[in-house]
């Protein structure tokens, strides 16, 4: 991880403070990436409130769509947002955008909930505790380009494919439910999802701009 780059970034943020978050486009950071950095550095509660108002209702809706019930969705939402506040100082804009980072925390919180009774051991590999050295050559530009591409390709997907892609994130129970409803073996359901993901990967590779 290149700390110098992050340092430079944060100091450039300092200069643009007070003029809103959206002036950081020259750094390719989204409004929410900058907001997270600000929360991490200054424990800024009003920035946190904006972030919460943007992400918590989206996260709740996303969790409902992938199989959580109302109360579980709200609980995971709250636990995720608390974690966002507490771990904002470890947020590294080189490895993930705000929405990817928040998704990853929510993923872990959902696992904790599903495993509550059967998992006395913590998973030491929680991405919140390690920045995984996934790819040493990463930089913010590459990361933001990747995320932008995904958003653009998603926008243009036919509804059927979009539904399949979303179902990749369903919990086990919801996968079994699809299998029952469509009268297909669970393996076939999973294999369709895998093919949809592979098709998306190809679309990403072919996508220009």
């Amino acid at each position: 991880m290149n700390f110098r780059v992050v340092e430079e970034l944060i100091s450039s943020l300092d200069m643009s403070m007070g003029s809103g978050f959206s002036n950081d486009n020259q750094n390719n950071l989204s409004e929410w990436d900058s907001c997270l950095l600000k929360i991490g550095k200054y424990r800024d509660k009003s920035a946190f409130k904006s972030l919460y108002e943007h992400f918590a209702p989206r996260l709740k809706s996303f969790l409902l769509r992938i199989g959580s019930d109302e109360s579980a969705a709200e609980e995971i939402c709250q636990e995720t947002m608390i974690m966002v506040w507490r771990r904002a100082e470890t947020y590294n804009p080189e490895s993930a955008g705000a929405s990817t980072w928040i998704f990853t925390i929510a993923r872990n919180k959902r696992i904790d909930k599903l495993r509550k009774d059967s998992r006395p051991l913590p998973n030491f590999n929680d991405p919140l505790f390690y920045q995984k050295p996934i790819d040493k050559s990463d930089d913010i530009l590459q990361r933001t380009e990747e995320e932008k591409k995904i958003k653009n390709v998603l926008k243009n997907l036919p509804p059927e494919q979009a539904k399949l892609i979303l179902s990749a994130y369903y919990d086990d129970k919801s996968h079994r439910k699809i299998a029952e409803e469509t009268n297909l073996p669970l393996g076939t359901v999973k294999s369709r999802i895998r093919l949809a993901i592979n098709r998306l990967r190809t679309q990403l590779e072919d996508f220009e701009g």
């Binding site: 209702p57 709250q78 993930a96 928040i102 929510a106």
Partner: peptide, 20 residues
């Protein structure tokens, strides 16, 4: 995995907000 997590982030970002 990186792509799948980014995809999760994009799906989260695209979700219609539902009030808590």
């Amino acid at each position: 995995i990186r792509m799948l997590l980014q995809l999760g982030g994009a799906l989260l970002e695209n979700s219609e907000p539902i009030s808590l």
